[in-house]
């Protein structure tokens, strides 16, 4: 097999459902990756074994949405829903290149229909709905389809009395869908509020990067908000801020650690502890919501 083939999307996912526990852990022989942080070279097998965390410096490599779900959900429990829900090009948006082309390219590149995967699973035995965003898909920006899938996830949690767990990574709203994207912030935030009124727990995990309209809506409205180490989290992007204030931003500004220090997060949790930490929180909150329901 030519080397280039290893990096191609393995299967055509368009309009098909993804089964649970389908992450690819088979590693091609002799593939090495370079750590963005410490610049050291790491054997791919070693990286996979460490959930793509650099064994030398602890740098967290990005994960795909499916890798995220495999990391969080109990093995073999994930069943996807709304797999065929896709974006259209409602504004016929064209600047530099047509949005429709960007969508096609993103689908070809990732094998995904959209920038988020949603479904049912268990985490530590707790029934949950789970969603994970995939930054490779147009920066996991939120357009109509992402907003709809997030909303359906939260509505399913409410209807089925499950906890909701959402792992975010996003550049923000998808500008190619204009005002319709902005309105997804209103839509998803309303759905979070409804889930909260029903007394059901919602936990979010913010990963690198979580910015703009996604941060400023469903991502930070969770009952408990965790983040991965060094994840960049914020509203305005660093370039926009630098242009506005006309000075360089301090090092580590908008990092998860800085946001924790400013009181915006409940914890910065290393990747290999995420599933157990979320599960432990659910032991408290999911139990409380069930006993509240019974009374």
């Amino acid at each position: 097999m030519p080397i280039a083939d290893w990096f191609k999307a393995r299967d055509e996912r368009r309009y098909t459902s993804i089964g649970g526990g389908s992450a690819q852990t088979d590693v091609p022989e002799g593939v090495w990756s370079k750590c963005d942080a410490c610049k050291r070279t790491i054997y791919e097998g070693e990286l996979v074994a460490a959930n793509r965390v650099c064994p030398h410096c602890g740098h967290h490599f990005p994960l795909t949405a499916m890798q995220r779900i495999d990391l969080m959900a109990d093995e073999g429990t994930f069943v996807e829903f709304d797999a065929g829900l896709t974006s259209v090009d409602p504004l016929q948006f064209c600047a530099v290149k047509p949005y429709a082309d960007s969508l096609d390219a993103a689908q070809d590149k990732t094998g995904l229909n959209e920038a988020i995967i949603t479904g049912r699973a268990t985490i530590g035995g707790h029934d949950v709905v789970i969603a994970a965003m995939d930054f490779r898909f147009i920066g996991a920006s939120m357009g109509s389809a992402v907003g709809e899938k997030v909303t359906r996830t939260l509505e399913a949690a409410r209807a089925e009395k499950r906890a909701a767990v959402i792992v975010t990574a996003s550049g923000g709203a998808r500008m190619q869908e204009g005002i319709l994207s902005l309105m997804q912030m209103a839509k998803t935030s309303s759905a979070v509020a409804r889930l909260g009124s029903a007394g059901l727990p919602y936990i979010s995990v913010l990963t690198d990067p979580t910015m703009g309209g996604v941060t400023a809506s469903f991502a930070v409205l969770a009952d408990v908000v965790f983040a991965e180490p060094a994840a960049r989290i914020g509203f305005a992007g660093p370039l926009i801020i630098e242009q506005t204030i006309r000075q360089k931003l301090p090092r580590g500004f908008q990092s998860a650690e800085s946001m924790l220090q400013h009181g915006m997060l409940d914890g910065v949790v290393p990747r290999d502890e995420l599933a157990s930490r979320v599960s432990l929180v659910l032991d408290y909150l999911a139990l409380a919501s069930q006993s509240g329901d019974a009374s």
Binding site: G84, T86, N113, S144, A145, G147, E148, Q184
Partner: peptide, 8 residues
Amino acid sequence: IGVFEEGA
């Protein structure tokens, strides 16, 4: 609000 497509 939102325009999308339900796949097969």
